[in-house]
Amino acid sequence: MNILLVGEFSRLHNSLKEGLEKSGHNVILIGSGDGFKDFSVDIDVSSKIKKSKILSLINSMFIRFLNLDFIKLENAFYYNQKINQLKGFDIIQLINEDALFTYPKFQIKFLDKLFSQNKDTFLLCCGNDYISVKYALDGKLKHSSMTSYLEDQSQKKRFIYALKYITPPYKKLHHFIYKNTKGVIASDMDYHIPLKNHPHYLGLIPNPINVDKIEYIPLNVNDKINIFHGINSHSSIKKGNKFFTEALYIIKKKYEDKVNIIETTNLPYKEYINIYNNAHILLDQIYAYDQGYNALEAMAKGKVVFTGAEQEWLDHYNLEEDTVAINALPDVNYLVKKLEWLIENPDQINKISKNARQFIETHHDYKEVAKQYLATWQNN
């Protein structure tokens, strides 16, 4: 089959592409590389404005004073330039409802033409969208990426990206996509829970991880324990990074002779994964039920990851608490106690490390996950 994957936020579509190609399918990935993360794409529509400090500054002023984002206009222009190349695909999958990152009216116009000149289209629920944001704002989750906003709505400016999904233009885009696609697939429990029982929902397919490319690194804990905390400033508030930072401050004072702590901000993807290679423990995110892509890749390497590992996730995979990953909660004292437990019981680090790799190989192997996507697409 000829398959077009539209958009990339985390490396999910890259790994899915690699798995699909192993089964003999022809796959093209179009996207921007997601800014500073710089993910690989086959057809590049990355912003020239975003790569220029001066143009980005000017654009920020237009957004602030005129509510006009030239990067979104630029994205619409680049996608429309490529539309005639995007024909003859059996399957199209959008990474998200805002896969093109342009104004909804331009997305609807582009997608209408894209859909008309190809066969079947599917939507991936991966990141914020209309249903997940509304579900969180309605208070139906114990915690979510919207928790900080619900606790303090003076932070509204920090949540503009998420809140846009419940505005009339994006709600219209949501309904257009749902009307013109065969179904929606969730990438993890955080999106599965809001979508349950929705007539358009096709089910959860775990994130694909290329275990052939990611080598398991046995952990040597004879010396200091290395703790890594990589921060993305654009999403730090919704991921709850401040709780990790506060917990690390306490740990550093108490265990200075036993730990090395590394904190980074906004690293490109390749640099990010290289820096955490020597880590024993990786602090990923708070407010999640399941693991995101960074956490899964770190688990594949055998890191002990603090991330979403809620009871719903444990039940789904039939796991016991603290055997594969550490559930990260918005509680500094709790995080400190979990870190102390690992520092004082380094044998647990090795045990969780091996379990984490096995879990990824069992449930997230990119070749097997690609087969799940193929079956879902073909059955719908």
Results as ranks from 00 to 15, higher is better:
Leu141Glu: 03
Ala328Met: 11
Lys196Asp: 09
Lys182Ala: 14
Ile3Cys: 10
Ala328Leu: 14
Asp120Ser: 06
Lys337Arg: 13
Val184Tyr: 12
Leu137Phe: 06
Tyr216Cys: 13
Ile30Cys: 00
Asn207Trp: 09
Asp98Pro: 10
Asn379His: 02
Lys53Gly: 13
His280Asp: 05
Ala309Thr: 03
Glu321Phe: 06
Gly292Ile: 06
Val184Ala: 14
Lys22Cys: 13
Ile160Glu: 15
Thr265Trp: 13
Pro206Gln: 03
Ile273Cys: 02
Ile28Tyr: 00
Ala328His: 14
Ile30Ala: 00
Asn294Trp: 00
Val184His: 10
Gln378Gly: 06
His363Thr: 11
Ile237Pro: 02
Lys238Ser: 12
Ile209Thr: 12
Tyr373Lys: 03
Thr323Lys: 05
Leu73Asp: 07
Ala136Gln: 14
Ile160Pro: 05
Ala288Gln: 13
Leu204Glu: 15
Glu215Val: 11
Ala295Ile: 03
Lys164Gly: 05
Asp98Ile: 06
His364Val: 04
Asn26Ser: 04
Tyr103Gln: 01
Ala300Phe: 06
Leu12Asp: 08
Lys196Arg: 05
Glu344Ala: 07
Gly88Val: 02
Ser235Met: 04
Asn75Ser: 08
Glu321Lys: 11
Asp223Asn: 14
Lys252Arg: 09
Tyr135Phe: 11
Pro218Ala: 10
Asp129Ile: 04
Val27Tyr: 01
Leu204Phe: 14
Thr167Cys: 06
Phe228Ile: 00
Gln291Ile: 04
Glu297Trp: 09
Ile54Asn: 03
Ile131Asn: 06
Ile286Val: 10
Asn345Met: 09
Gly7Ala: 04
Lys140Arg: 15
Ser15Tyr: 15
Asn380Thr: 15
Phe244Pro: 05
Lys48Thr: 02
Ile58Lys: 05
Tyr249Asn: 14
Phe36Asn: 00
Glu97Ala: 01
Asn197Phe: 01
Val221Phe: 08
Ala328Pro: 13
Pro169Asn: 10
Gly240Val: 02
Ser56Val: 03
Ala279Gly: 14
Asn75Pro: 03
Ser23Cys: 00
Ser154Trp: 09
Ser187Asn: 14
Tyr78Ile: 09
Asn350Cys: 04
Gln311Ser: 13
Phe77Met: 15
Val305Gln: 08
Ile343Leu: 08
Lys224His: 13
Tyr317Cys: 08
Met61Phe: 15
Asp212Ile: 00
Leu141Ser: 04
Asn318Ile: 12
Gly19Trp: 00
Tyr366Arg: 08
Ile262Ala: 10
Leu68Arg: 07
Tyr269His: 07
Thr323Leu: 00
Ile261Lys: 00
Asn80Asp: 15
Ile250Phe: 13
Asp90Lys: 11
Lys171Glu: 15
Asp290Cys: 05
Glu21Leu: 07
Pro168Ile: 03
Leu195Cys: 05
Ser353His: 11
His143Lys: 15
Ile352Gln: 01
Asn345Pro: 11
Leu29Ala: 08
Ile349His: 11
Asn226Ala: 10
Gly230Ser: 10
His364Glu: 06
Leu100Gly: 07
Ala370Trp: 02
Asp69Cys: 03
Lys253Cys: 12
Ile193Trp: 01
Tyr149Gly: 05
Lys239Arg: 02
Ile275Met: 03
Ser235Gln: 07
